[in-house]
Amino acid sequence: MLGFFMKLSPAARIAAVILLVYVAVALSGPLWAPYSFNAVLTGGPFEPPSTAHLLGTDNLGRDVLSRVVYGSRPVLAMALSATGLATLVGAALALPLVLQGGLADEIGMRILEILASVPPLVLALLLISGLGNGNILIVLAVAFLFAPRIARVVRAAAMAVVVEDYVTAALTRGEAMWSIAVREMLPNVAGTILVEFAIRCGFAVVFIGALGFLGFGAAPPAPEWGLMINEGRANINASLWPVLAPAAAMAVLVVAINLFTEGLARAIGDAPGTAP
């Protein structure tokens, strides 16, 4: 683990530390956050930063820092679970299709491309307004949007693997399809899948934030970053902090994910076990 960390570029190491801080804050936040995310009139409305309220207060006198800290929990949980689900589904679709080849592969991939070509926000809003609201539904909707895109990337990597002789050798000894996909192909596309997962996590954070901003998903008074930005927007002349704090939290998180992903992709490129 530490050896892997040392292989990352300096920027990626800093990004990894930032990501660890985010996870630590999300896990331990309720233990040390100065106020509850929902406690009103902990001070006056629109107070500027002070020792009592490090990031000021919002229109209801709620502590902005506490709300941002609590807000890291849903965004991390939803982004990770949506991306994880999408990666699982995408890989599980792509590997058997590539292995099967021929007509099944052609038809399957054309369907996935059609799904991937619909603008994601439009499709997400359609799904959510058609099926109802709620965090689980948003996770499912984001996973549904990302899965075809991930499947295409996994497929591209798997195409290079499926022609290798070790896959042919597995075919000639009569291995089952799932066994070839999991035993022979998956380890050789795992790096690509991991990098794709990391990239999509960054997208998911922004996407879920955008849905919250538009009023989908979390409902007031939930401390969701996108929702907080929207609420603070109306009173931006009174105080900048209720908008700035969640926006900055989201921006730093996404930048850290992207920098870490870039370092990850490079480190995997010369991972042990690959032929020179």
Binding site: E164, D165, Y166, T168, A169, E184, P187, N188, G273, T274, A275
Partner: peptide
């Protein structure tokens, strides 16, 4: 196979 580099899974 002809090419032993490709006939053994590099991850096994």
């Amino acid at each position: 196979f002809q090419n032993p580099d490709g006939s053994l899974n590099p991850r096994h």
